[in-house]
Nucleic acid binder design. Structure first.
Length: 431
RNA sequence: GGAGAAGUGGCCGAGCGGUCGAAGGCGGUUGACUCGAAAUCAACUGAGCGGCUUGCCUGCUCCGUGAGUUCGAAUCUCACCUUCUCCGCCA
């Protein structure tokens, strides 16, 4: 959600942003918001005046009662009664205008960074940089499920019976590799100065609507029946939500956290659940990183964050590239976003394994996260910090890259050196 | 799950129908004293939203959250949330 003041003072910027995102159908929202905003302020001024009068008269009644001047007090009561009746409808109007405005504002996307390439869909995303040599072995690389099955590492049939499509049992070495990747990712980020955290896996509705847009909420979140609780889609939700309604001292910034959690996603409106695979599923686990920082530092943190993921994959010798999300593919809350993609020797192309986003102050504004400026800061008033989030690694999807890139001709899979301590020293997984 | 107690500003803590956005303290900022620091003294010091004469002006809202009673609610009533203590249960 952007500041109403931007719409009030610079509506053309907001319209231009909508055009850049190919959301022309939302252009009318700008004028509607301007209109609602001015009507809201007008009715607020009116109501405030009435409230001021009511407060004054009520105070007088108190004084009169004290002096025993009952008749005059009764006259005051009558006036306040009348004001209250008048206020009733005015306050109802105020409330409905505010709700309507908020509703409109929720659908006006965040102002994207000037560096974001313009494009309609993910087909227009722009490759930024490649890291490592994408290699294709001289034997055929099977589908990842086949690799896993040969290692007796996956049971999708049982999962379909217990839970349906989009779930999995990981077994044996594959399951161990899964845990090893997460443990290694955790320690990798701790070594880079991030604080490890295991957050709640369920959060309240108020937090959910603060960290994501309504469409995302509809399409992603599982709700717990009969309670105001949702299963998190990523630990980013709990980790940013952690700061809801708080004022942070500036010297506690930047907040740099690396968190682990299972992630639950309905994947409605995405590309659907994959029948045979662990690429897009309802449940996975993820090591995440989040940063809360001063607005002027967020661009720098953004680069640092996705470089962490690149370095992580490179430490496992998996070739990756970074892909800049174009304007039309960028979620409404985001200012800028880069995907990290890993090389698939089977498909001979890169596929998404992580996503790094700068949300600007959108989440902070929705959640009421503010910063109290420190001594040397020129700012005098509390301000909204910027929030960023990025994937370190999300197995089992990440396992696809790991298995494909470390597969040998005989079907065995080499365990990359950094993972061996987490695999009891094991150097390979045998068929 | 059951029984009690409690939630007030950055923190501690008083207030328990009107003069309360809230005593007092701590912390913070500024000034005085000092070569400087400490100590001491003085002033200032919550947030959000609006208005215009943009002023260290002015109005509204906020004492866990939401409803209600009342001319008037931090203060009374109800529901919910959270915390603490005891019991039960459990990893």
């Amino acid at each position: 959600m952007i500041d109403v003041k931007i719409i009030r003072t610079n509506p053309e910027l907001v319209r231009e942003n909508l055009r850049k995102k190919f959301q022309e159908q939302r252009l009318p929202l700008v004028d509607e918001a301007i209109d609602l905003d001015s009507r809201l302020r007008e009715s607020k001024t009116k109501a405030d005046t009435l409230r001021a009068r009511r407060n004054a008269v009520s105070r007088e009644i108190g004084a009169l009662m004290g002096k025993g001047r009952k008749d005059e007090a009764e006259a005051g009561k009558a006036e306040v009664g009348e004001i209250s009746r008048e206020l009733e409808s005015l306050e109802a109007l105020e409330e409905s205008l505010a709700a309507e405005l908020r509703e409109k504002m929720m659908f006006i996307p965040n102002i994207i960074d000037p560096s974001v390439p313009i494009g309609r869909s993910d087909a227009d995303n722009v490759e930024v940089e490649r890291f490592g040599e994408p290699a294709v072995p001289d034997f055929e690389v099977p589908y990842h499920i086949d690799i896993m099955e040969r290692l007796k590492g996956i049971d999708l049939d049982s999962a379909r019976k217990t839970s349906g499509a989009g779930f999995y049992y990981l077994c044996g070495d594959v399951a161990r590799l899964h845990s090893a990747v997460l443990s290694y990712a955790r320690d990798f980020m701790i070594d880079r100065g991030f604080t490890y955290c295991v957050p709640p896996f369920m959060i309240r509705g108020g937090v959910v609507s603060g960290v994501m847009s309504f469409t995302e909420m509809e399409n992603m979140m599982y709700k717990i029946e009969g309670e105001d609780l949702y299963l998190i889609g990523t630990s980013e939700h709990s980790m940013i939500g952690k700061f809801i309604d708080t004022i942070l001292d500036e010297d506690t910034l930047p907040q740099t956290w690396t968190s682990y959690s299972p992630c639950f996603r309905k994947e409605v409106g995405a590309h659907g659940i994959e029948e045979r695979g662990v690429y897009r599923i309802h449940q996975f686990e993820k090591q995440e990183m989040i940063v809360v920082c001063r607005p002027e530092d967020s661009a720098e943190w953004f680069v640092k964050l996705y470089r962490n993921t690149v370095d992580f994959f490179r430490s496992l010798d998996i070739p990756v590239r970074t892909l800049e999300c174009c304007s039309g593919d960028l979620a409404d809350l985001k200012v800028k976003s880069v995907d990290v993609e890993a090389w698939s020797p089977r498909q001979k192309k890169y596929f998404e394994v992580g996503s790094c986003s700068n949300l600007g102050d959108a989440q902070a504004r929705r959640l009421g996260i503010r910063v109290r400026p420190g001594g040397d800061d020129k700012r005098k008033e509390n301000y909204f910090p910027h929030t960023l989030n990025n994937t370190v690694t999300a197995p089992p999807r990440m396992l696809i890259a790991l298995l494909e890139n470390n597969l040998r001709a005989d079907g065995s899979v080499a365990v990359p050196v950094p993972l061996r301590p987490y695999m009891g020293g094991k150097e390979q997984c045998n068929v």
